[in-house]
């Protein structure tokens, strides 16, 4: 643990401020017991003050708002990809159980989630940026486009480059933003696709073993309909439950991915803060994530009741 002096030192920018150190420690209660400091911080959080981010010289809450759009952009592209690809591959693997396609996807899945995300990112950069001469570059936008985007007549509605490009009907910007998105989105997705795929597969297998599948076949339905209509809907239920955790995994991946690709979102900011020991920022980031995670799980729980008619909010076991 750092001493109060050390912690105050983090915020010192030049020698003159050294003299003010004792006053600063006094004022911010840096020498108070841990519990008291926590209480103060918590109190401040409820008034909306998350502290000051030394790294970007802004209040933490402002920093979050500033960096969030970039991360949202990644999430918007990665999430549907992960879910759809995971469900598709999982269903296919289950339908071809114990045959080459199943084994192949299984190996791919295990490889997928054994991959260190940061290493995958670096390798992809090496190949697609280095070897293929800048085909898929890091960062959010190339330099020229960046200048374009930050000047009139381009209007920044959401600060999400792809959406803003569409709203401004600007093709080149859209394509440029997309080009920069490919690698980070792929890096983020691989691990999660593997996870969803395996879950979907085992869930499908369980579903396919149930009685109503035999009934469906006995009705004369084509195998494709049996699998897609009857089995899959039931198999999706556990997968939906898990999507809250996928969000958490994405949150983790975002830190590494943004760092590697210099994609300036909240993950990147959090990393900068962590390295520079900007505790307020890191705490604020962790808190933000936790709140978001709880909210996402809440949404998932509600969604769950829509999908599974056996479950209704507020009821006990029937």
């Amino acid at each position: 643990m750092f001493s109060p002096t050390q912690r105050a030192m983090l915020y010192v920018r030049d020698a003159k401020q050294l003299a003010d150190l004792p006053a600063v420690i006094e004022r911010y209660g840096l020498d108070q017991p841990f519990v008291v400091q926590y209480g103060t911080w918590l109190g401040q959080v409820f008034t909306g003050n998350l502290g000051y981010s030394k790294v970007v010289s802004q209040p933490v809450s402002d920093a979050i708002i500033q960096f969030l759009p970039a991360t949202l952009e990644l999430a918007i592209f990665a999430t549907p990809l992960i879910i759809l690809l995971g469900i598709l591959l999982g269903t296919t693997a289950a339908a071809h159980k114990d045959r080459p396609l199943d084994h192949g996807t299984r190996v791919a899945a295990i490889l997928g989630w054994s991959l260190p995300t940061f290493w995958l990112g670096l390798m992809l950069l090496m190949i697609f940026y280095g070897f293929l001469r800048g085909f898929l570059p890091p960062g959010r936008l190339s330099v020229q486009i960046d200048l374009l985007v930050n000047a009139a007549p381009f209007i920044r509605y959401t600060h999400i480059n792809t959406i803003d490009a569409i709203l401004n009907l600007d093709g080149p910007v859209f394509l440029d933003a997309l080009r920069h998105l490919v690698l980070p989105v792929v890096t983020l997705s691989v691990v999660n696709v593997a996870f969803i795929m395996r879950l979907m597969r085992s869930s499908m297998l369980e579903s396919l073993g149930k009685g109503y599948i035999l009934t469906a076949r006995a009705k004369g339905l084509a195998e494709r309909v049996v699998v897609n209509k009857h089995a899959r809907r039931n198999a999706l239920i556990p997968v939906i439950t898990v999507s809250g955790y996928v969000f958490a995994a994405l949150a983790n991946g975002v830190v590494i991915t943004e760092t590697i690709f210099n994609f300036k979102g909240i993950g990147w900011w959090a990393w900068q803060s962590a390295i520079n020991l900007d505790i307020s920022s890191v705490l604020g980031f962790a808190l933000f994530n936790a709140v978001l995670f709880v909210l996402v799980n809440l949404v998932v729980d509600v969604l769950y009741t829509r999908v599974d008619p056996r479950v209704r909010l507020g009821q006990g076991v029937q």
């Binding site: 643990m1 949150a251 505790i279 980031f285 962790a286 995670f293």
Partner: peptide, 17 residues
């Protein structure tokens, strides 16, 4: 469990050095 693992770990490591 409300905190994504890596982020919480990051916070702890940052705090402890």
């Amino acid at each position: 469990l409300a905190f994504p693992a890596l982020i919480l770990a990051m916070a702890i490591v940052a705090a402890l050095g």
